[in-house]
Amino acid sequence: MSSPPSLVVEGLAFAYPDGHQALYGVDLTVGRGERVAVLGPNGAGKTTLVLHLNGILTGGRGRVEVAGLPVAKTNLAEIRRRVGIVFQDPDDQLFMPTVREDVAFGPANLGLRGPELADRIEEALALVGMAGYADRPPHHLSYGQRRRVAVATVLAMRPEILVLDEPSSNLDPASRRELADILLALPVTILMVTHDLPYALQLCPRAVILDDGVIVRDAPTYDLLCDDATMAAHRLELPFGFDPRTVARPTG
C-alpha cells in the first residue's frame, strides 16, 4: 500500500488513576477508506479507546498512529485535526451560539480565516445536508439535525478518520436512515462505536468486538453477527425480529 493506514493501534493498555484497568493491549489497524464498527458490551473499554485516538488520554502502554503520525504531546494539534471524534450527545459537541460558529471552531483553531474558513463551513454543512442552517442556534434544531451538524463540525477539519460514538442513539428511524445515507457517501475512513448491530451491518463491512479491554474478534460484520456463539459470549444481542441471514450479504 502506498499510503499508511488511517489508524494503527498497537498493544494499547491503560489504567485510570483510580487503578481501574480499562484496556489490556488493544491491537487494531484500519486501512484508508475502511468503515469499521467497534462492538462490545458496556464497560468494555470502548470510550477509553476512543479517547486515546486523539490523545485526550495518554500515559498507558502501547502506541497509536494516525496516518503514519504517532500520537504524542508534540503533535497533538495535527492529531486532533486528523481524528474527528463525534461524541454521543450533540449538546456536548455543539457549544457555540450558532451552527456556523460551531462548525468554524475546529478549522479556526487550525488557523483558517476569512473566505477559506467560510468555504470549509459551507462544504462541511453541505456534506451533511444542513447548508441552510448556518445561522441557527443549535438548540433550535431537531435532535437528528444536531447530530448531523456535530458530524459537520469535525468534517470541517478534513479529518483522516471519523470516529463516531453511538451515532444512531436517540434518533428516530427517519433521522437514523438520513444519517446512514450521509455517512455512506462520505469519502473518509470511519470508526464507529455502537450497540446498534443492524446499523453496524448496514454501514460497516468490517467489525471488531472489544471486551474486557482487548479485541477478541475481528471479522466481516456479516459473519460476526451470524456467529451465535461469539455473540452470546460477549453479551451482544440482535434486536427482536432481526436476522442478518435474511439481509442480503453486503458486497465488497
Binding site: A77, L117, T153
Partner: peptide, 22 residues
C-alpha cells in the same frame, strides 16, 4: 459533568484557550 464532556469535545477540536470569533 456536562461541562467536562463539553471541554473534552472542545479539546478534540483543537481548543487552546481562545474562542475564535467571526
Amino acid at each position: 459533568e456536562r461541562g467536562e464532556r463539553v471541554h473534552l469535545a472542545m479539546l478534540s477540536r483543537g481548543y487552546s484557550g481562545r474562542l475564535p470569533t467571526l
